[in-house]
Design a protein around this nucleic acid. Structure first.
Lengths: 343, 343
DNA sequence: TTATTGTATGTACACGTGTACACAACGTGT
DNA sequence: ACACGTTGTGTACACGTGTACATACAATAA
């Protein structure tokens, strides 16, 4: 019994502060509501009493009343991955700066967890859900919309009415990558990808292959494993083991690229870019490490995130699909263009 | 006017479902409350109507009423860092599995943001706050406790009554690192650390230096920059530039270790472990990459997280400080022990 | 049949807040 | 002196839910 009471009544409410300060409860509410009309004297009294009693506005109650939770859900899998982690770091930081609160929902493991994640977001009356991996069920998305929730899909190619779909222009980047390898004088060009690639990643592959077809070049394709360094290691080993060993590789992901580079260097004694040109995608921090010096594409994260925030914080009822150009970051994993082509 | 109404009344509430199903509102509540007593027939009716209307329990209201939010705050800075990202990934995954919801608060930038983060956690009536970087103001912590909030400090050495302080045994690891370098036959042993090291990281340094003093060995110390790969690069360059170039280095962080290795290899043509033995700490994914093969210490993340969850989900009123042994991961960045010591 | 138990439902209240509305006090211009 | 706009405060209600309590009803035991 006594436990019940103590665990129930221990919260300090606005009315407690009001009593202590000798003012009305609404004055307390107004004191903590920006733009509300309170006299300076009562405001001071309220603030003092709140300080003494340790009062803090209960945002659960406040959100319930105003039907504005201020929460934004971030739904992602494999958030320990360099690029994903960077995205989440920047997103959470900017959301914080915009006065929003980020709810992180990790969907690693089962793919169906995206549904559960969205259900959780709905039940907390999240103002928006930013989905970095996977895609929701359309009917569930409708429920989101009818609750006034915004939806953002990052790096997904499927149509999704009512939501913002944003990401880099993967196809164009793939084309650029091919042309760069070609112009670097590569004779045997390869593509390496993971076998669980998302639609965004597949677009990079498509763009690359399209450009190859247009140039009349045959591309060596090696696909294996999940998107990871380990997969890159395996792919690289297979590639270097081939009789027609490639001298230029486009990896759909920096992690794979690092694996390929290490396979070539550590297992075959090949150097980059002298023996093998490599291009990646994502511009993860490790791409800049001196051991890799990876030429790659930087996703326009700043622009993507700004657009996300704009979408989440303003009224945007319609559908929108945005493709932003990826920036080609030229480092030193691709053979420099020869002025006079040999042979 | 019409906007107001539409933006207000669009939420579908339990009473709507009740009307549609021809039952009482409490029956709806009970249907979605595990263990509540509802007949199978009404339950079915309610579920059907809820499905049709797209009803989802409002957890803001529910939390407010039961004074149990189910939210756990994760407070951290530099969450894009490999080790930190891994911690957050595992924490969020296990919290999710335990039925909790994680609120991510990024405190990168200003250190004072830890206060703001905790204030935010309090106002959302978070059940617990897990702090991965920085430490809160003690008075604010008291406010947390009086609100029934649990507090966990990870990898902080300061005393903090009322909270769980947990982390690896940094000091012991530092000693182990020194002895490993000594036993590997290193003649000139160095320590590299960042100049903004946290208390936990400083303990590694202390343990290392203690062991050195006991062994009567003079240690070359190089400290610079913030904890990052770049700092490691700079430190490594300085170390390799010295006249008494070290042949064994303990880096307080894997990121620094990777930088040191790259500095030695790329800028001085030195090989690891033949010319330089390196030991790191954290066992980040990159430590396993074939380009580094870094011998390091794996933090007992699983144990730490399990303990965190236990602390957060059960009644644990007292203070507790837990040090868990770090696992020495032997790879190939340290010279193998010679059977017959040369000279 | 009656007393008793257990189950399902309904009533009433509580959680803690924001805000529309009414109203009092006050200064200002005529 | 009076009308009037401005400012601060109080009253009442709404947000959407969970649960203690009472009650109606079916099932069981005596």
């Amino acid at each position: 019994m006594s436990e019940k009471v103590s665990s129930r009544k221990q919260q300090v409410r606005a009315v407690d502060v009001a009593r202590h300060a000798g003012v009305s409860r609404v004055s307390v509410s107004r004191t903590f509501t920006p733009g509300a009309s309170v006299s300076a004297s009562t405001r001071a009294k309220v603030l003092k009493s709140a300080e003494i009693l340790g009062y803090h506005v209960n945002r659960l109650a406040s959100s319930l009343n105003r039907s504005e939770s201020g929460i934004v859900a971030l739904i992602a899998a494999e958030i320990e991955t360099p690029h994903r982690a960077t995205m989440i770091a920047e997103l959470s930081e900017k959301l914080q700066a915009a006065g929003k609160v980020t709810m992180l929902i990790n969907t690693s493991g089962y793919e169906e967890r995206v549904q559960d994640a969205l259900l959780q977001a709905i039940s907390f009356r999240t103002e928006a859900a930013i989905i970095l991996s996977g895609a929701p069920d359309p009917s569930l998305a409708d429920t989101c919309f009818s609750n006034g929730m915004k939806l953002v899909l990052i790096n997904r190619e499927e149509d999704f009415p009512g939501s913002l779909q944003i990401g880099p222009d993967n196809k164009a980047a793939g084309r650029t990558a091919f042309n760069a390898l070609l112009r670097a004088g590569c004779q045997r060009i390869a593509l390496s990808n993971s076998s669980n690639a998302t639609s965004g990643i597949l677009e990079r592959e498509e763009g690359f292959l399209e450009a190859a077809v247009e140039a009349g070049v045959n591309v060596i394709c090696e696909v294996a494993g999940v998107t990871s360094y380990k997969a890159g290691l395996e792919i690289g080993t297979r590639l270097m083991d081939r009789e027609d060993r490639p001298d230029g590789v486009f990896c759909t992901t920096d992690l794979i690229a690092c694996g390929v580079i290490d396979a070539a260097r550590q297992r075959f004694g090949l150097r980059t870019p002298e023996d093998l040109s490599v291009i990646g995608f994502d511009n993860i921090p490790q791409a800049e490490w001196e051991g890799y010096n990876l030429t790659t594409f930087a996703q326009p994260t700043d622009l993507i995130i700004d657009k996300c925030l704009e979408w989440c914080t303003t009224q945007q009822p319609s559908t929108e699909a945005v493709k932003l150009p990826a920036r080609f970051v030229w480092r030193n994993s691709v053979q420099k263009v020869l002025v006079a082509q040999s042979q």
